[in-house]
Nucleic acid binder design. Structure first.
Length: 408
RNA sequence: CGGGCUGUAGCGCAGUUGGUAGCGCGCGUGGUUCGGGACCACGAGGUCGGAGGUUCAAAUCCUCUCAGUCCGACCA
């Protein structure tokens, strides 16, 4: 992609009101643009990051056999009356013709349960996992911290349906592993730990995945022996590590980047979702729910991977791998850079080419650092004299010359 | 939802005891620069968040309201 044609250039200053690192760098770098509190536009660079995160999540969900669907954002209020959740204070409400009331879904149990119910009748149809990647709407009393807590945000939500609790438990354990795999691929693996949190009406605990980070809004206690956390909200009832019994716990902050919990029969009961078992008897379906927010993960990545100059994207989700810079005004220098860009792009490399801009080298370097692509390449009169291009990694201070012909 | 702070040019900000609005960045034109956010000249761009009030006169004072943000509460 040509930087000169990109909608969303870097900007030097951002409002002093934006305190969070993720908001500052993402806005300054031209990744996102704020429309209002907790609601953001994703510009081309930001959308590429978000899409890469979504694709990694999607691949892993599909790999364990889940069905991807897309459910509506708009749902009749009636569905929430059935489950008794029509009084949730995070609901955004709206009205249609004739005063019909709708809500914008803050989560999709009320949609997915009746949907799956239409296609699942027998134990032969179970278990089944259904997920989507879609925007959620929650009227947060206080949106904050850039894209870490928004009123409209992107989420992968998966719902599993089972004949019995054992099947639910098995699936639940599979999802724990899959979640860890996703965080590994996102570059967050080492910092992200399984955390015990408050459960719902039918299970003692739910589990969160917390990325350890000083600015995280959750307080968790981590076990010094195993890689497990305990959310502060349950620390009065759970004062030791649930997995190893260790009472030596350290307080840390975390960003909740995932949450899984067992719904059991709460929603199947509300909608009368039953299946026929192998003796022909009707039984309630057991359910689990597994959430993960790509937009929040994007913010988390910036909070975790940055320095005083800008973002340092992990390669797996960087919007482009290479940031190609051409220095100097000589036509032949530009042509060489253009040739390299064409060749690399044709070979499938993802290159952001800072092509023709009448700015100084320093500006281009500063922009490259801010945008944070993994590899910076420079073509200039100097490098061409040495038949080479200068290559530098964003996370390193060292640069080296590589032969131009390697890129042609 | 409580408490604090903030709304002035596209963005970031200044604006004194009320007297009719400025700076930086960015943008346009021309020129000098060209390996770590260069510089000069000229130029375009604002009914000062909104409504009402006080006053000869309001960005400035008063009331209400909307919005942003931080702290707290809340957060399947």
């Amino acid at each position: 992609m040509l930087y000169s044609k990109l909608l969303g250039k870097t900007i030097k200053s951002v409002s002093a009101d934006e305190e969070s690192i993720n908001a500052q760098y993402l806005i300054r770098g031209g990744f996102i643009n704020k429309q209002m509190a907790g609601v953001y536009n994703y510009l081309p660079l930001g959308l590429r990051v978000l899409t890469k995160i979504q694709n990694i999540i999607r691949e892993e969900m599909l790999a364990v056999g889940a069905n991807e669907v897309l459910m509506p954002s708009l749902t009749q209020e009636e569905s929430y009356k059935i489950t008794g959740r029509d009084n949730m204070d995070v609901l955004f409400r709206c009205e249609g013709h004739g005063g019909t009331k709708y809500v914008l879904n803050p989560t999709h149990e009320e949609v997915v349960t009746p949907l799956v119910q239409k296609f699942v009748f027998s134990y032969n149809d179970l278990p089944v996992g259904v997920f989507q990647i879609q925007n959620k709407y929650r009227n947060e009393p206080r949106a904050k911290s850039g894209i870490l807590r928004g009123r409209e945000f992107n989420m992968k939500d998966l719902y599993s349906f089972h004949t019995d609790e054992n099947s639910l438990n098995e699936y639940y354990e599979v999802m724990k592993k899959v979640y860890h795999k996703v965080y590994d691929r996102l570059g967050l693996g080492e910092l992200t730990i399984l955390t015990y949190a408050a459960g719902g009406a039918f299970s003692r605990y739910s589990h969160e995945f917390q990325t350890l980070c000083a600015v995280g809004e959750d307080t968790i206690y981590t076990c010094t022996k195993c890689n497990i956390g305990i959310n502060k909200e349950i620390i009065t009832e759970q004062t030791s590590c649930p997995e190893c019994g260790n009472v030596d716990l350290i307080e840390k902050n975390g960003i909740e980047v995932g949450n899984i919990f067992k719904l059991r029969t709460k929603f199947s009961e509300a909608f009368g979702f039953k299946y026929s078992d192998n003796s022909g008897q009707e039984q309630l379906v057991e359910m689990g729910c597994y959430g993960m927010g790509p937009s929040r993960i994007m913010g988390t990545l910036v909070e975790v991977f940055h320095d005083d100059k800008g973002i340092i994207w992990p390669e797996s989700i960087a919007p482009f791998k290479y940031h190609l810079i051409v220095l100097g005004k000589e036509e032949e220098t530009f042509e060489m850079a253009q040739k390299i860009y064409n060749k690399m792009t044709a070979n499938g490399s993802e290159v952001l080419f800072d092509d023709r801009r009448d700015v100084t080298a320093g500006t281009k370097f500063a922009d490259a650092d801010l945008i944070g692509l993994p590899v910076r390449m420079i073509v200039s009169k100097k490098t061409i004299e040495k038949q080479s291009v200068e290559v530098k990694k964003r996370n390193s201070d060292k640069s080296e010359l590589e032969l131009i012909e390697n890129y042609l």
